[in-house]
């Protein structure tokens, strides 16, 4: 079974430049149905209102961080199974453990490359 690359992907980052980079890298690997949010609260609103197949989120955002967004997603009956990838500069062990305990599907540390992004997406969507 191949990955449905037409699925909606929500990318979340407070750096608009980073959103643009991730959007372009997703496009390179044929994910063209991409929406953006610039913080956790906006992302949660979009997730609850829409129908997404994957969330790719930064951690360090205000007022709601990526970790808080992940916790909200996992606590929401409709969203709790949503594949959730954290892409962040937070590279301390305590961060990775906290994200894992909150239910992150995978974790990418910045700076990252397109191959790592592709590999992690395939893994969380069950084809890695």
């Amino acid at each position: 079974m191949s990955i449905d690359k037409s699925m909606s992907v929500l990318i979340v980052d407070d750096y608009k430049t980073m959103l643009r980079i991730i959007r372009n890298l997703l496009k390179q690997i044929d994910f063209n149905n991409v929406e953006e949010a610039t913080d956790g609260a906006e992302a949660l609103g979009k997730l609850r209102a829409g129908s997404f197949g994957l969330v790719i989120s930064d951690w360090n955002m205000a007022p709601m961080t990526g970790l808080q967004l992940l916790q909200e997603v996992r606590a929401d009956a409709r969203l709790k199974a949503m594949p959730f990838i954290m892409i962040t500069a937070e590279s301390k062990t305590e961060n990775v453990i906290a994200a894992k305990q909150a239910g992150v599907s995978n974790y990418i540390v910045k700076p990252f490359n397109a191959e790592t992004l592709r590999e992690k997406i395939e893994k969380v969507l069950g084809h890695g």
Binding site: W59, S91, T93, I108, K110
Partner: peptide, 24 residues
């Protein structure tokens, strides 16, 4: 309120992607 917001680490203190993969 942001005890886990450490930001980018200097190379000596940072885990790279393979370290994170192993931890996960």
């Amino acid at each position: 309120t942001a005890s886990l917001l450490n930001g980018p680490q200097l190379p000596a203190a940072a885990m790279d992607q393979s370290d994170i993969d192993k931890l996960l």
